[in-house]
């Protein structure tokens, strides 16, 4: 992981069609519409939930979203597996 960055959110303004769905879905106010463009005004607030990337119809956003719970990640680090959150019961 890049140590200089707080998170994995990436935005390519060239692909953006200004639909503004990212402004709607982001629970942290990372995006802002300034004049006629959308900017990452507060990228450090990103919690990597992935809602913006999933809902962007133009693929202008990407973020590695994943399990954010420490115990699952510690377990994954120890066992070498992928972190899973045990919503497993009766699932998959």
């Amino acid at each position: 992981m890049d140590k200089t960055r707080a998170n994995t959110l990436e935005y390519n303004p060239d692909l953006c069609n200004l639909c503004g769905i990212c402004l709607v879905v982001c629970p942290q106010g990372v995006f802002e519409r300034v004049d006629s463009e959308i900017r990452l005004s507060n990228p450090d607030a990103c919690m990597e939930c992935g809602a913006c990337a999933l809902n962007c119809p133009r693929g202008a956003l990407s973020v590695d979203s994943g399990v954010g719970c420490a115990s699952a990640m510690i377990k994954a680090a120890l066992t070498g597996g992928e972190p899973t959150c045990g919503c497993d019961e009766g699932c998959c």
Partner: peptide, 13 residues
């Protein structure tokens, strides 16, 4: 284990 939690859980999977 936290991971079994289903109300305020952690799975931003």
């Amino acid at each position: 284990m936290k991971s079994k939690d289903s109300n305020e859980c952690c799975c931003s999977g």
